[in-house]
Amino acid sequence: MSEKKDIVFCTGGGCTAKLGAGVLSRILEKLPRGEKDPNLLVGYDSRDDAAVYQVTEELALVQTVDFFPPMVDDPYIFGQVAAANALSDVYAMGGEVKTALNLVCFPESMDLNVLGQILQGGAEKVAEAGGILAGGHSIADTGVKYGLSVTGLVNPKKLYANDAGQPGDRLILTKALGVGLICSANRVGEVTKEQMDGAVQSMTTLNKTAAEISRKYTVHACTDVTGFGFLGHLHEMMGRGLSCEIDVKHIPVLPGARESADAFLYTAAGQRNRNHVGAAVQFENVPFSMEEVLFDPQTSGGLLMAAAPDEAEKLEQELQNVGLPARIVGTITEPGEVEIFVRG
């Protein structure tokens, strides 16, 4: 592979660049719905991870799109992370990746070798997912942005919605949290190389294996943890009036993340997440740094699954057996006074 060139203007990309959930909701709720199509099983009004359109009784299309500015200085790694992040939405719906289209914004004045490295990283992740890179679209822009439009397939009867969990379900998180905090601290030189390497390894790991393993078990709901943070996406999972209890002692956290929070090196997106969902959360004996980890926006984060209680431990063990830091982190409960109760 050719020598990589740094994207020296990396100042805050990845899923930290997303619009806040509150702002986005206010915009989307004003859009005209149009005539309802019964084959559209999941649309933008459900706050789910991707759109799902049924074609036959046993076949539906899963469609998603995601792109953002760089959150790392290496263009090849940036391409890998952006692709893995976009592909994740298909896995969160229980689907299989089939095709992908590149989405590129790139300055005409910049070295085209940088673009080549970004696209190489993305193409390799699409291939690893078992998909076909079928084309794309590019525009000249003042800054670099990259991602994918992805199409997958799923059996409608085996579709994972994000809010179909049931009381008693155990919540399983498949990746460690803290990517946003570590990337933020890295931009000012406040993390070690080993800590940043750990974040990169997490972000470039596809959720493919976790999704494939999950299909052998009873999983009632699933989402991937990205820009709205663990608590923001958990809030969406409780959208049908459910509550849950979370034990922070079981939350996997990347080395360096809590130290970055203690040094106040967190992101504006994390604070937007706190402002949006904080009223739905009650903390008990949870350190401030751990609160920040739970609000931290994740780029290419893990899957958060609601698994049947009698199968959750076996699912957790199988995920751990393939090297994933998966843990049972909590339980869905009947509706209570507090939607999300987090204990230390």
Rank of each mutant, 00 (worst) to 15 (best):
G94F: 04
Q298I: 01
G13S: 04
A50S: 07
G121V: 14
V65L: 07
L159F: 02
K125S: 08
L153H: 04
A123G: 15
G147N: 01
A164L: 12
N39R: 15
V42Y: 09
V248W: 02
N162A: 10
V248M: 07
E57N: 13
L41P: 13
V322D: 07
I27G: 01
D169N: 12
T192M: 07
K18T: 01
E212Y: 06
M238H: 13
V97L: 08
E194R: 15
E284G: 00
C244D: 06
N186L: 03
L315M: 11
G20N: 01
Q80S: 02
L101Y: 07
E284D: 04
A221P: 08
M237I: 14
G143K: 12
Q282V: 04
V277E: 00
N102Y: 04
G116S: 14
L24C: 01
R272W: 01
E58K: 15
Y44K: 13
P107F: 11
D89R: 13
I77E: 15
H250A: 15
V322Q: 07
A268C: 00
G302Y: 03
N162R: 14
G344E: 05
V322R: 07
T299G: 10
G344A: 10
A50E: 02
A279F: 01
K314S: 10
Q120I: 14
G34Q: 13
G43W: 13
Q117S: 15
N85H: 06
E58V: 13
M1D: 11
C183Y: 02
A221F: 03
D310K: 02
V286W: 06
G323N: 12
L173Y: 02
E236L: 15
V144D: 03
L153V: 10
V154N: 00
L231S: 08
V188A: 00
A82I: 01
K5F: 11
N186E: 02
Q271R: 02
Q54E: 13
I172S: 05
G95Y: 05
T151L: 00
A17Y: 03
Q271V: 10
R26H: 13
G344Y: 08
M290V: 05
E313A: 10
L112D: 05
A176C: 03
G189H: 09
H250F: 08
R343G: 11
L101Q: 13
E128F: 06
V8N: 09
M93D: 03
D163W: 07
V342H: 06
E313C: 02
A199Y: 11
I118L: 11
D224H: 15
R187I: 12
D310Q: 12
V72P: 07
Y146F: 14
F68H: 04
P325N: 11
S88F: 05
G302C: 03
D247A: 08
L59N: 14
D89N: 08
A257Q: 01
